[in-house]
Amino acid sequence: MQPSNQISATPRFMIPERLETDRLVLRMFAADDWRALHEYYSDAECMRYTYRRAQSEAGTWRAMAGMAGQWLLRGYGPYALEEKSTRTVLGTVGLWYPLEWPEPEIKWALARRHWGKAYASEAVRAVQRMVSECVPELSLISLIDSQNAASIRLALAVGARLEREMEFAGAPFHVYRHPRRPAV
């Protein structure tokens, strides 16, 4: 019997590599995105509830590399969040499941100058819809420092509900459960 010359294609990832909303593009990371993301990661106020300190350029690059690596290791990952009209990278939104997390989550992280413009909620809702269509079996949380009032407000605004409090990274965190079927 002769070996087959046909190559069978299998999907690379469990979720689309790109999503769009009216104002936003959620896409896989590009090599230079770390430069725009550094606006977020180098801001001590942005890092207050996550890394607890501003990151160096190398730290930002490693953070982006870790997010990009989630795609290969988990079959899904966070997206670079880009404003459609300007092609400016605002931050990151998407699926995230590092080793120490209790469950997969929807994460968001936007540079401070983009706060208050409803970009994060628009992007999170797009991710919720995509998950309900592509991987409906995936139950998602957002793990939020109990002092992070802005992220708690966002979680509630997109339909997530407080499920429990837990100790995480030496601080009290809240686990917010996202709805399986998001509102339209």
Rank of each mutant, 00 (worst) to 15 (best):
A9M: 09
C134K: 10
Q147L: 14
W61C: 00
M47T: 05
R48I: 01
R129E: 10
Y49R: 08
P78D: 02
Q128Y: 00
P179I: 15
S146P: 00
T60S: 15
E82N: 04
Y76E: 11
V175A: 12
G59P: 03
L99E: 13
F13Y: 14
K117Q: 10
Y40F: 15
H178S: 13
R181F: 08
E167Y: 02
L162D: 10
T21I: 12
E122G: 06
R74C: 01
A31F: 06
P16Y: 07
G66I: 00
L90H: 05
C134M: 07
R112L: 06
A65S: 13
A36T: 09
E137L: 03
M47I: 05
L19N: 08
W34L: 07
A155F: 01
Y49C: 08
D22R: 15
S56G: 04
E163V: 00
E39P: 03
V127C: 04
T86L: 04
M166A: 07
F13I: 08
R153L: 04
R53L: 04
P136I: 13
P11V: 06
P104T: 01
F173Q: 07
T21S: 11
G170Q: 02
L110Y: 05
A123L: 02
F13M: 05
K84N: 06
Y49K: 08
P11L: 07
D33F: 11
R129P: 00
K117P: 00
W96G: 00
S121T: 10
M47E: 10
R180L: 15
P104R: 01
P3N: 10
D33K: 01
Y41F: 14
A149V: 14
P98M: 06
I7F: 11
M130S: 13
A126W: 07
P78C: 12
P179M: 15
W115L: 02
E167W: 03
S85E: 14
M130L: 09
L24N: 11
S139V: 14
A120F: 02
S132K: 03
